[in-house]
Design a protein around this nucleic acid. Sequence first.
DNA 1: GCCGTTTTCGGCCCGACTGTTTTCAGTCG
Length: 581
Amino acid sequence: MENAEVARVLGEIADLLELTGGNAFKVRAYRRAAQVIDVHPGSISELCREGRVAELPGVGAHIAAKIGELVETGECREHARLSALVPPGVLDMLRLEGIGPKTVEAVWKTLGITDVAALEAACRSGRVLDAAHVGPTRARAILGAIERQRGRAGRMLLHRALGYAAPILERLRTVPGVRRAEVAGSLRRRKETIGDLDLLVASDDAAPVVRAFTGLSGVTAVLAEGPTKASVRLRAGIQADLRVLAPGSFGAALHYFTGSKSHNIAIRTRAMKRGLKISEYGVFDRQGRVIGGAAEEDVFRAVGLPFIPPELREGMGEIEAAEAGRLPRLVEESELLGDLHVHSRASSDSRSELAEIAASAGTLGRRYVAITDHSRARPLGLDAPRLAEHAAAIRALDARLGGRPHLLAGVEVDVLPTGALDLPEEALAGLDCVVASIHSHLADPAARNTERIVRALRSGVVHVLGHPTGRQLGTRDAYALDLERVLDVAREEDVALEVNAMPERLDLTDAGCRAAKAAGVPVVISTDAHDATQLANLRYGVWVARRGWLEAKDVLNTLPLAELRRRLRRRGATARTAPGR
DNA sequence: GCCGTTTTCGGCCCGACTGTTTTCAGTCG
């Protein structure tokens, strides 16, 4: 069973407990375990089989047992028991922004509203005002939340989609006759959200592949089934589409089904001008003879272009760039030498020891890691004396590690609503890596948010602007911001923008990366790991950067440590030569 | 239900903000 599925069930147990008056701390425990599992880079099923799932932070004996049950049987009795107490639509209401368990419980129990549609009707008719703590403002807010949720409906976060696709591919590859099985579509382009899973298989014998696909254990409904294609609905609520093609057509099909649509149109138009025809079955000349199709490269070669990586195929100028020989050489995960935003147990929301982080980072081949815990505006955050102590501890361990990996002393300092930093400049000036982030007052207007960030960038002590837009995929939009202005100031002040690799953030966005590059502002790609195991999530950030056309030279943490230090120190130099700022 | 340099019981982040109330509950970060 996939991590996403385990996390979903645990998260639902938390929701159901909350709606049925369960202990709030128990609710929190389930929620935390779900979160940890959701972003865990390895396979939970495997960890479970090794009997090691309780080693994860937030997973104890009881939750480990439930995970075991889930992995073994695909079911969880506790989940089933609670589900029987709550109508299914009630959980959907809980997903609405600005509505919590109390409000949902109130409209459900006092008004008998059990789904979003009924809630919407009650908001429009005014009946919802009969529920406790719901007035006209909140009724309007609910309608807005329903509207926004609709806009996001049906899409799934990239890391979850990959989690669902991987075991399906694995299974399909075991079917006799299968040569290749790959994801296509937006999943292969590494888009941040995925509508449905597109899967492609190369085989001369399609029937057993289709049978294996429709017979997968996660399938709840077979929507269509033919000789070479099938569509199913998965337990996760998303659709998966399978196409089976002859190996000689696989490259052409992979290109066609990877898209995007506008990219495909541009390629096919080019082919037409050359008297060629490209379809999912291959590349054909004027006489209709096959001149390629087994490999994706055949398609590009036919239209006189070099291979264009899937992440660039959005019809955003990649064909023109390829034509002119100006395709970027996209940054690769292996080129990233370090991670510049990692939390240790000095942050209230992380439990990892410095030594654990160092060990995990070393295993992943990172040469340096910046420990950047929260400042005092966050619960239990570091004040200046504790930060100094913490930095000393980091440096002491760094000395013992002898560079395997190097530990950098840093901080994630809050940018207060005024734009002032949450710690005095003297406390920050000596640190190796200062990440400044916004965590509060997210609803302020663009002008105020922009000036707030600008002031922080002008402080002279900030190296990196953390998760610059504040969005959380599927739950929270980016705060209003004039990104152009932020980029202008970042360039002036020599501050890098972060690509936060947390799967639910991915912030900067791909478009933001492109804007940063255009503005001449470097980025850093960091995990924001809240547990040592999350250090492996760097790849999600790399994909965003690739979609944003970034090359290694645009990403500061591809630099060897000595060079990185020089780049970061320049920041401090600015501060020293410009007193009074 | 988890967790432990205050360790096997008894805590578990807590303040700001908002809208609904009439002194506070719910939500969020």
